[in-house]
Structures are given as structure tokens and as C-alpha cells.
Simulated scan of single mutants.
Amino acid sequence: MRLSSLLSGLCAATLALAAPRTAQIYVQPILTSTSSPVPLAEVAYDPFSPDVAQIVTYEHPELPAESSLVRVGLYETKSATWLAGTTVASTENFAKGYSPNILLTVDRIGGNVISAAVKGVAIDAGQTRDFGPKAIVVVESMGKQPELNKPIVLSPEGKKVEEVEKTFLQKYWYLLAIGAFLLISGGGGGS
């Protein structure tokens, strides 16, 4: 009975982690006057297969002409707070001739959104027919660990212990022992 409940609990946890998630991305013009964030896109993603991320809904933002910068990120309307890391982008990313790419950075363990960004990519009508916005998901990964040298040895007083370099005889005594053994045992010739 306990084994079956343990297995069913593990399966439920696996399904909960593997379920696709959605993130509601907001955009807010940065002006001298206060303006509230407006929905930009809803992105469906799976942190375990980031290549299948897709835009569920997208609303082209109506930005004031005097604004040149926008804030992009996850926003909770009930508490009026930004939930994850926000980025600042130029309003030119939403201009004609550009297709917005929405970049989500997600946690590798929980799959939670860490940051959201927008980058406008120039559209070349002769090359492609896919002009719509795209979603890109980047899963954080461990950085390269430093390769450290030999640790410094300290004396009980806290001073650096000077290591004495070994002499030739201390380093290669075994070669001299092998050579002596070969000289002693090498020999007998018959007459």
C-alpha cells in the first residue's frame, strides 16, 4: 500500500513539473507621467523542452509618441507589483519592419520565470513569411567552475608555511635503487 502511494505521488509530482506553463508579459512606457502596464503577450512554455515555446496571445502595444523606452516583464495587476526581473527596451522594437522576439529566462529547477525581455528583429520579406512575434525560452544553467591551484598551507600561528624543495636524491631515489639492483643481479657469464 505504501509503495503504490509513493509511486503515485512521484508520478503526480513529475506531471506537475512537466505540465506546460504560461507567462503573462506586460509592457509599460517609461514617461515622466505615470502610466500603468498593459498586457503584451501570453507565452506558453515548457522548462524541460524550451524549443516548443509559443505565443498564445499577442497585443501590439499602443505607445505614446513621446516615450522612447518601455519596461517589459511579469506584472501582477491585483497587487500592482512586478513579479520577476524586468528589462528596459527601446520603443523601436515595436516599429514597422520589426518582429518582436519575447525572451524568457526560466529557473532550471522549478521552471519559474526569472526575467523577460523583448528584442525587435528586422523583417526581410524576401526571406521568410513568418512575420509574427516569436517566443524564446532560455533555461539557466550552471556556470563554469573555477579551477583552483594548490591550497595555501598555514601554520598554527596563521603564517604561510614555506615548503622546502626536494633534492635530486629525494625525488629520484627509486631510480638509483633500480639501477643498483640491475648492476648487482646483471651478471654472470659462463666460461
Rank of each mutant, 00 (worst) to 15 (best):
S4A: 13
S8V: 01
A12L: 14
L17V: 08
A18C: 13
I25R: 00
I30Q: 10
L31E: 14
L31Q: 12
T34R: 09
S35P: 00
S36H: 06
P37L: 06
V38E: 07
P39E: 09
A41E: 02
A41P: 01
Y45E: 05
D46I: 00
P47T: 00
P50T: 01
V52L: 09
I55H: 02
Y58A: 04
E59D: 10
H60F: 07
L63I: 08
S68T: 13
S68A: 08
V72I: 15
V72T: 02
L74E: 01
T77D: 15
T77E: 15
T81G: 04
W82M: 04
L83V: 15
G85I: 03
G85S: 14
N93H: 15
F94Y: 05
S99R: 11
D107L: 02
D107Y: 03
I109D: 15
G110H: 08
G111D: 06
S115H: 09
V118E: 03
A122T: 12
G126T: 12
F131R: 02
V137G: 03
S141C: 05
M142Y: 12
G143M: 07
K144T: 10
K144C: 11
L148W: 08
K150Y: 13
P151S: 04
P156F: 02
K159E: 15
E162Y: 04
F168I: 09
Q170T: 02
Y172G: 05
I178D: 07
G179L: 14
A180C: 12
S185W: 13
G189F: 13
G190H: 10
